[in-house]
Design a protein around this nucleic acid. Structure first.
Ligand SMILES: [Mn+2]
Ligand SMILES: [Mn+2]
Ligand SMILES: [Zn+2]
Ligand SMILES: [Zn+2]
Lengths: 128, 128
DNA sequence: AGCTATAATGATAATCATTCCGAGTATTGA
DNA sequence: TCAATACTCGGAATGATTATCATTATAGCT
């Protein structure tokens, strides 16, 4: 019952775009860029392929800090910083704390498998 | 130019509901409960008052782990656990790490003002 | 208690991101 | 070359949230 993916030029270009940026772009950003290569591109194609790339483990979805989702081709475990003024998201070069899951699990009625940390504040550009 | 709020029975009851639960409810949950007391209640009223309660510092918005927002009348700084199976959100009884903001700020081009941690896994109930 | 100013309400329309659908197209493997 | 089926575009549908507006409730006066 498992789905076998066929390759698509749209999806290949999408991954290429995502890997070339640090900006954690939105679906709309990707759509606008990709439209330069595929003038009849559809939004549905962008979302469908984002879903596939996530399923393949090449991309992660970022669903905080905004009203719309953003996407990240850096699939190593890392934390994020969100600028409260301009909305920019950047990676935080800080060691990932593996021990944290155990610490949280010890105090609660649940089995912790992963965690996420988001820092909020003002980026260099907005801080002037 | 500042807005002065008048009290409303709907908003008072909403805060009461939110303070009486640990479940981090959605706007819809609040709407259904509140409708028992106000049979002509409108969804707009729920959202408007949630906004006001947030503005007043009595409520926090939780915008991760789901397609819809959830709300928390526990405004002390604390971390959350999200069950990946049933979507339940619970507080994590773990000391808040004040030093973390500084640690993150040291490595990046930004001024960190706050942070958030979400743990993901399986809750006791879903874990069987 | 009346009067005035204005915040809050409920009904409904609008918005926005995302998902779904269906008829035609591209990719794959034999 | 051919059949199977994943992928495409375009548009419609969905779902959460926000905006609008005529009416109502609240608060501070006199
Ligand atoms: Mn990242
Ligand atoms: Mn909480
Ligand atoms: Zn900024
Ligand atoms: Zn659960």
């Amino acid at each position: 019952m498992e789905t076998r993916y066929k390759k698509s030029r749209q999806r290949e270009k999408m991954l290429e775009l995502l890997r070339a940026t640090e900006s954690h772009p939105s679906a709309d950003w990707i759509y606008e860029r990709l439209k330069k290569d595929f003038k009849n591109l559809s939004m549905g194609t962008v979302y469908r392929n984002l879903g596939i790339l996530i399923d393949q483990g090449f991309v992660r979805k970022i669903d905080f800090g905004s009203t719309f989702d953003r996407f990240d081709a850096n699939v190593t475990r890392h934390y994020h910083f969100v600028c409260e003024k301009c909305g920019a998201i950047s990676d935080v070069e800080m060691p990932f704390d593996d021990a944290l899951n155990r610490k949280a699990g010890r105090v609660g009625n649940f089995e912790v498998r992963s965690h996420r940390i988001e820092f909020f504040g003002v980026c260099r550009k907005c801080g002037k």
